[in-house]
């Protein structure tokens, strides 16, 4: 490897180090750089710059996964177990119940005066939805600021898809307040809820914070939300919009179910090392 490549990759690695977990950088920042230097000096001719780039990028992502998702003190873990469970249980429950009520009223919506009642109910719940999601957005923004101030940029970035889900949903809800038949277009939120419940259940169970019963309960909330959603799709006419989403979420649940013991046995020993 010539010196030009050497300098370039070294600069790249120095830059990449800024995105490593702060706790690791504080303790071993110099050692990480030294180890990389030694690897560069030790390179034989068969391992080119491309391999070195691949090596450091793979290590970077492996480190992020281990430090943020599997470590006991990882902020993302604290988020999901301490706050995530409460937030997503509340919203999962709210979503399931409100959708169920909407369906029950929806069955009567074509029957004379009931139609008007259905319309009023739907639109009033839409405003409640907007308020709740807006408060959730503020809460998550607060958490993002907390993580950034703690030096955990990566965790803050992880919250972006949640923001995206919230604002898409608010946008859809505002549209729905003008046209109540747009109701199924808000189903994207189910995806965020299901993923949230999934992560909450997994992290809490693997860390022995909760038992198997709680984990199953979390799964059931997610599934209930999903099932209500499926019923909703068949009642209202925009089927294809939701089919891909349903296939995606269902596949995720099936994969999780089939691999439950394998995932558990492979992650638990790693977590045990964090103690």
């Amino acid at each position: 490897m010539d010196s030009k490549w050497n300098r370039l990759i070294y600069k790249f690695y120095r830059g990449l180090l800024r995105f490593y977990p702060q706790s690791l950088r504080n303790l071993y920042g110099q050692q990480l750089l030294l180890m990389f230097e030694e690897r560069c000096q030790d390179m034989d001719s068969t391992w080119g710059p491309a391999w070195l780039f691949y090596w450091i990028l793979k290590d970077f992502f492996r480190t992020l996964i281990h430090e943020y998702l599997l470590s006991e003190t990882a902020p993302i873990f604290m988020l999901w177990t301490r706050f995530g469970a409460v937030i997503f249980m509340l919203f999962g429950g709210y979503s399931a119940v409100s959708r169920l009520v909407k369906i029950i009223y929806g069955l009567k919506r074509s029957q004379g005066s009931e139609a008007n009642l259905w319309r009023v109910f739907t639109i009033s719940t839409v405003y409640l939805d907007i308020l709740i999601y807006f408060l959730l957005a503020i809460a998550i923004l607060g958490l993002a600021v907390f993580f950034i101030r703690s030096g955990s940029w990566f965790t803050a970035v992880l919250l972006l898809p949640v923001f995206y889900g919230i604002f898409i949903h608010i946008h859809a809800l505002i549209g729905m307040s003008f046209e109540w038949r747009l109701l199924p277009f808000t189903n994207s939120w189910t995806f965020v809820i299901s993923i949230g419940i999934l992560l909450t259940g997994l992290t809490a169970y693997y860390k022995n914070f909760v038992g198997k019963k709680i984990f199953v309960a979390l799964c059931m909330v997610g599934l209930t939300t999903l099932m209500v959603d499926v019923v909703l799709i068949y009642m209202i006419w925009t089927i294809w919009f939701n089919v891909i989403e349903i296939i995606f979420i269902s596949t995720g649940w099936v994969i999780l179910g089939l691999n439950f013991h394998r995932i558990h046995s492979s992650i638990n020993p790693q977590l045990a090392q964090g103690r």
Binding site: L24, Y28, D59, R62, H66, Q273, G274
Partner: peptide, 15 residues
């Protein structure tokens, strides 16, 4: 890699 190794070392010292 460096991160994997020092991440493990950190946890092993803690343990």
């Amino acid at each position: 890699g460096p991160g994997t190794l020092y991440g493990s070392i950190k946890r092993m010292i803690e343990a």
